[in-house]
Computed example of a mutant assay.
Amino acid sequence: MSKNDEESLRPATRLVQGGRRPEWTGDPRLGGAVVNPPVWRASTILYDNVADLKARGHATHDKLYYGRRGTPNVWALADALTDLEPGAEGTLLYPSGVAANSAGLLALLSPGDHLLMVDSAYEPTRAFCNGMLARMGVRTTYYDPLIGAGIADLLTDQTKLIFLESPGSLTFEVQDVPAITAIARRRGIVTMLDNTWATPLLFPALAHGVDVAMMSLTKYAGGHSDAMMGSLTATRAVWPKLRSAAYQLGQAVSPDDCAMMLRGLRTLDVRMARHGENGLAVANWLAARAEVGRVLHPALSGDPGHALWKRDFNGTSGLFGFTLKGVDEAARTRFIDALSHFGIGFSWGGYESLVVPSDPATIRSATLWTDPDPLVRLSIGLEDPADLIADLERGFAAL
């Protein structure tokens, strides 16, 4: 199949077929092929002779060289993720989403550079900017996630990268990604997007002008809360810098984890549909409750980001927040502790529903979070939404 034919396939088909190259799933000597690449656990790779070793070189993203450079499990997962972003040159894998973000920023920024970071970014991303990047002489300016084309007013001659996260993982503001990336392209500035909430199924980042799309595969891509990994999928112009930095930093992932991630990825299309459907059912129910101040969910018509979500996204995931009207933190704790179908735990995107208290005011600098009502974040899983709603009723009773 030609590259054009592959890119014409719809996302659900690409999810099933991506990364299943015959050389990774079959052996002519055995007279057949398997559906999934077998797990290739390896540190040392053996060569036939010295000439073979020297001929192998270092262009090893799809050839065995040394275990850290990957085996067919790594390449199959990377291939499958690249297939989800038409126009991408390739994908690199990292031990976690935080590692992917940090490695990407290190690869693309140098001392003296200026970084524009969205104010609603995931807290570990902010910590990296305020810590290691600051120590190496990179200046970070945080910006309002709703700034849109106004980002142009913040650019300087030293601005080298604009980081986006849409929707924000705590407060769910939707950014005008096409407006920001268009300005960045005209100025020769790289853009990087944390696309974990939507995945490429709901928001094909590169098609909206983004140069580097990051995902915490730990969440929806893996989908089963049993493995951690992150990815960067990039355009041809940016790809060499990312790849070189990943090799220099010694970033590597386990072939076993890749096999688990690839298995989760195959069902991402059907799982995302159910997450979105369940999430909307719960969100709409919450919006009608007297105990709720507001629901932070861009797919709801009353949400401030709804128009941009409707314009740019292909659907919704199951992560959103809501406030408890007129109560204190102790009441929020009673509400959460009364739930039985929602696990209390970090991360999200697995098959099970989760709940955590959320306090975004503590990690804002360019914008203020002034809502006096305590915020709760829900990750809606694959349970029957009627059971989840009944559980939330028990939480409200505990207020």
Rank of each mutant, 00 (worst) to 15 (best):
G31D: 11
D303E: 09
R271G: 07
T181D: 02
W75N: 10
F172K: 01
G188I: 06
G343P: 14
T13C: 14
L296P: 00
C129M: 13
A184F: 05
A397N: 14
F322K: 06
I180P: 04
S225G: 13
A207W: 08
R14D: 06
A227D: 06
I180R: 07
A182T: 13
R135W: 15
P240G: 10
G230Y: 02
S216I: 04
D337Q: 15
V98T: 11
A299W: 00
S244K: 14
Y47C: 05
A100W: 01
D62M: 11
D176W: 03
T235W: 05
P374M: 02
A149V: 04
A281E: 05
P200G: 01
E165P: 01
A221Q: 09
W197E: 07
G168V: 02
A398N: 09
R394P: 07
A107D: 04
H297F: 11
L388T: 00
D211W: 04
K63I: 12
L378H: 08
S2I: 07
T218D: 02
I45T: 10
G305T: 08
G350D: 04
S340W: 15
R29Y: 13
A207C: 12
V270R: 15
P28M: 10
H306K: 09
L268P: 02
M261V: 11
A152Q: 03
V177I: 13
L392V: 14
R69K: 15
A179V: 14
Q175Y: 08
N101M: 10
Y47R: 08
D27L: 12
M1V: 12
V174D: 02
P11W: 01
A121W: 01
G293R: 02
L324T: 05
L392H: 11
I180Y: 06
A398M: 11
H114Q: 12
A390H: 09
A246C: 13
T199K: 05
G150I: 01
L354Q: 13
P145M: 00
A259F: 07
T218W: 01
E329S: 09
S379K: 02
A42S: 11
D176L: 04
L308H: 06
L268Y: 07
A307I: 08
P385A: 00
V238H: 05
D387F: 10
G209F: 02
G209K: 01
Q251T: 15
Y351P: 06
S216C: 12
S120N: 14
G112Q: 03
H114A: 06
R68L: 13
A152M: 03
P255S: 10
E393V: 15
L154H: 02
F342L: 08
L265W: 01
D79F: 00
N284M: 13
D211L: 07
